[in-house]
Design a protein around this nucleic acid. Structure first.
Lengths: 141, 141
DNA sequence: GCGAATCGTTAGCATAGCTAAGTGTTAGGA
DNA sequence: TCCTAACACTTAGCTATGCTAACGATTCGC
C-alpha cells in the first residue's frame, strides 16, 4: 500500500470517528451530567481508582480544572475522594456504585444506538467491521 | 452473528473511537484555537457556507453559544459573517482562505500522527482496516 | 531535622454552555 | 394595506470549564 493510500485510510478513519461520536453524543442528554463530568466519570469507572493528577492527565486537563469537576461528582455521590494512606498529599478518586450505575446506563444508550445501526448491516459486513476495529484498537493504544 | 456479538462489536467500536480521538486531540495544541472554535471552523470548512442555526445544530449547541464562537472566529479573520441576500434575518457564515489554511494545517498534524501509526501495521491489516472504515462510514452517516 | 520537590486546592481570569428577553425581518391574514 | 405572529439572530446574565499563579500540606533527600 503506497503512502498516498495510507494517508487516505488515515483521513477516513479520522473523519469517520469524529462523525460517529458526534452522532452518539446525542444520547448523553438524559444523563443529567455535562460532557466533561461524564467523561471524567467514565475514566474512573473503567480505569479504576486513581489520583487527581492521573485523572487530569487522562482527560488532558490541568489539575485545578479536574479538582472542580471531582467536586461536582463527589457532591452528587458518584465518586469518592479520600486521602491516600501511604502518601497523604495524594487523593484516591474512586467511583461509587451509583456512579457506575449512572455511567453504565449512559453507555447502554450509546452502545444501543450503535447496535441498532449495526443490525442493518449484512453479516459479512459486521465481520469485516469487527476485524477492522480489532486492528484499530491496537493503533489507538 | 448473534445479538451478543453485535453488542460486543458496537461496544468496541465505541470505546476505540473515543480512545483514538483522545490520542489525536493532543495534536491540536499548536492550532492556537480552543476545541469548540476549532470544531466549529472545521464544520464550516468541510460543510461549506451555512447559517448560524445550521452551524449551531451541527455542533449540538444553542444559537447564542455559537454566535459568540463565530464572533471570535470573525475577529481572527477565519470566517466571514454576512447577511443572507434573500432573507436578511439570516446570516451566511463562510470560511476565509486563512481559516481553511489553519484548519488544514491542524488536520495534517492529526492525520499525520495517525499515518505514522498505520505505517507500523502489516499491509494486510491496513487493507482490513480500510474495509472496516468503509463500512463504518455508512454506519456513521 | 530542613530545604526542596510534589500534590492538591484556592484565587482570579477568559471561554463556553444555558435560558430569557430584545431587535430586526419576513410572512400571512383581516 | 397593515398589523400581528413567527423567525433568525443577538444581548444579558447566569453557571461550568479551561487556564496560570500562588498557597498550604506532605514527603523526600541530604
Amino acid at each position: 500500500m503506497g503512502e498516498g493510500e495510507i494517508r487516505d485510510v488515515a483521513a477516513r478513519v479520522h473523519s469517520t470517528a469524529i462523525r460517529l461520536l458526534r452522532t452518539l453524543r446525542r444520547e448523553d442528554d438524559g444523563s443529567g451530567l455535562s460532557a466533561p463530568r461524564l467523561s471524567a466519570l467514565s475514566v474512573v469507572v473503567f480505569g479504576g481508582p486513581m489520583s487527581l493528577a492521573q485523572l487530569a492527565s487522562a482527560e488532558q486537563v490541568k489539575p485545578p480544572t479536574m479538582s472542580r469537576i471531582v467536586d461536582a461528582l463527589v457532591e452528587r455521590g458518584l465518586v469518592t475522594r479520600v486521602a491516600k494512606p501511604g502518601d497523604r498529599r495524594s487523593v484516591e478518586i474512586a467511583a461509587t456504585s451509583e456512579g457506575i450505575q449512572l455511567l453504565d446506563a449512559g453507555r447502554e444508550r450509546r452502545v444501543g444506538a450503535l447496535v441498532s445501526r449495526l443490525r442493518k448491516l449484512a453479516d459479512s459486513e459486521r465481520r469485516a467491521l469487527a476485524r477492522g476495529v480489532e486492528i484499530l484498537e491496537r493503533v489507538a493504544r
